[in-house]
Computed example of a mutant assay.
Amino acid sequence: MMEEFNRLVAQQMDTMDRLLFLQSEMERCNEVKSELLKLQEETMAEDILDEIGRMNKELQEIEKVFESQTVELIRVYHSSKICT
């Protein structure tokens, strides 16, 4: 009877060890997952900032083109006005 009791206690202790190990592994994995999600968000933020920078450059280039077109338009308008 005592042997059976000891065997059951040993089994239960093994089970408890496995349970504690799995719980700690799950906690560790959840921490790693949180860090990965944070890094992913940071990477996404960097990508968005890069895209904003690219669009700002493109906007500046378009503004320069628009300004030169406006100057040319005004020049042509004044030329045609003088000719008429």
Rank of each mutant, 00 (worst) to 15 (best):
M1Q: 05
M1P: 05
M2L: 03
E4P: 05
L8R: 12
L8E: 15
A10P: 00
Q12L: 15
M13P: 02
M13H: 13
T15H: 07
D17A: 13
R18V: 07
L19I: 03
L20S: 09
F21G: 01
L22D: 15
Q23R: 07
Q23L: 15
E25F: 03
E25H: 03
M26I: 08
M26Y: 06
M26R: 07
E27M: 01
E27P: 00
R28Y: 15
C29I: 03
N30A: 06
N30D: 11
E31S: 02
V32P: 02
S34M: 09
E35W: 06
L36W: 00
K38D: 03
Q40G: 15
Q40P: 01
Q40E: 15
E41G: 14
M44H: 00
M44D: 11
A45R: 05
A45D: 03
E46H: 08
E46C: 07
D47Y: 11
D47I: 01
D50I: 10
E51L: 08
R54K: 00
R54V: 05
M55G: 02
N56K: 01
N56I: 11
E58T: 13
E58V: 10
L59P: 08
Q60G: 14
E63F: 07
E63L: 06
K64H: 09
V65P: 02
V65E: 06
F66I: 07
Q69H: 13
Q69V: 12
Q69R: 09
V71D: 09
V71L: 13
V71G: 04
L73P: 04
I74F: 10
R75W: 07
V76L: 11
H78P: 00
H78R: 12
S79M: 06
S79N: 08
S79D: 13
S80N: 14
S80K: 09
I82P: 04
C83T: 05
T84D: 09
